[in-house]
Design a binder for these strands. Structure first.
Length: 276
DNA sequence: AAAGACACCTGTCCGC
DNA sequence: TGCGGACAGGTGTCTT
């Protein structure tokens, strides 16, 4: 067991965490659950303690939720903005903002740290994916279900800006602000364009761009920015690949100024020349 | 039904 | 140096 495994969250780090945590969690028996701060996005339910004595059988991911399956029920985890999961030996003391510790029978423990507490830990006795959080979600962006045809149909009846549409988890999951900006830049689409006014050919370009941006981000270990770089563990390196997000200088394609606007209470970065 | 505003939270950064 | 305020973002919920 190494000193730090799991990861901070940003975009697709949940996906990465699922893979990385798996070998350290499978087959572990839970001997105790310690909660120092139950007030996350929603309070951690008391019945989470039903899991004590259970053995972890599998890990699953849907959207940005991590589901940990045991023979006594399921944990549903979301890392919010600043959450991270790490496996450490029990004797390593807790750090600030470490809200949950799951202790295992081999003297290791899973630690959940989340300074901003935008994340959550929920319990499901059975059928975790029947939880309300999952029932109305759109397809996974890297799956075969996310096609240009599908997105076109979604856009047909929507007059909102395309950026807010691709960030809507009921349309497609997993596209946060950074990846929305990058995908629109790569596909040459102005983020303000009304969804129902984009032709099929450009929708196809957008779908391709989304898949490409996400695949690259996963490959590079996610994106870590500013205030997250101080956290322990290695940062994600996708930050170095960002073309427009956080760019207050010039467009990497045409050299003109990158514009910054606000859409749906979020910053949008784009090039008015390359994105129309 | 759809669109938009708002809330939650804290570390960081900036200006005074 | 210290302090107050703005800001960042994922996503459910409320309002229009």
């Amino acid at each position: 067991m190494s000193s730090g495994i799991g990861q901070r969250k940003r975009g697709w780090v949940t996906w990465i965490s699922t893979i990385r945590l798996q070998p350290h969690l499978l087959g572990r028996r839970i001997v105790d659950i310690q909660i120092t701060q139950p007030r996350l996005r929603w309070p951690i339910p008391d019945d989470i303690h039903c899991l004590v004595g259970g053995t972890i059988s599998s890990l699953q991911r849907r959207a940005k939720f991590l589901v940990v399956d045991t023979n006594r029920g399921h944990m549903i985890w979301h890392l919010g903005m600043s959450g991270s999961l790490r496996i450490l030996p029990n004797h390593v003391p807790a750090v600030k903002h470490e809200h949950v510790t799951i202790l295992f029978d081999d003297d290791s423990s899973l630690r959940y740290r989340d300074p901003r507490r935008f994340g959550c830990l929920l319990f499901a006795q059975q059928a975790p994916f029947e939880h309300q959080l999952f029932t109305r979600l759109g397809p996974e962006p890297l799956s075969d279900g996310f096609t240009a045809d599908y997105l076109s149909r979604q856009c047909r009846t929507r007059s909102s800006a395309i950026k807010t549409i691709i960030m809507d988890s009921h349309v497609v999951v997993g596209i946060g602000n950074i990846y929305a900006c990058e995908s629109l830049f790569l596909s040459g689409i102005n983020p303000k364009t009304r969804a129902n006014r984009i032709r099929a050919k450009r929708i196809q370009r957008l779908v391709n761009a989304i898949k490409s941006v996400l695949a690259q981000a996963i490959e590079k270990g996610g994106t870590t920015l500013q205030d997250f770089t101080q956290a322990d563990g290695k940062p994600g390196y996708f930050r170095h690949s960002l073309q427009v997000y956080g760019n207050t200088g010039q467009c990497p394609k045409c050299g003109r100024a990158i514009h910054r606007i606000t859409q749906a209470q979020r910053s949008t970065f784009y090039c008015t020349n390359c994105q129309r």
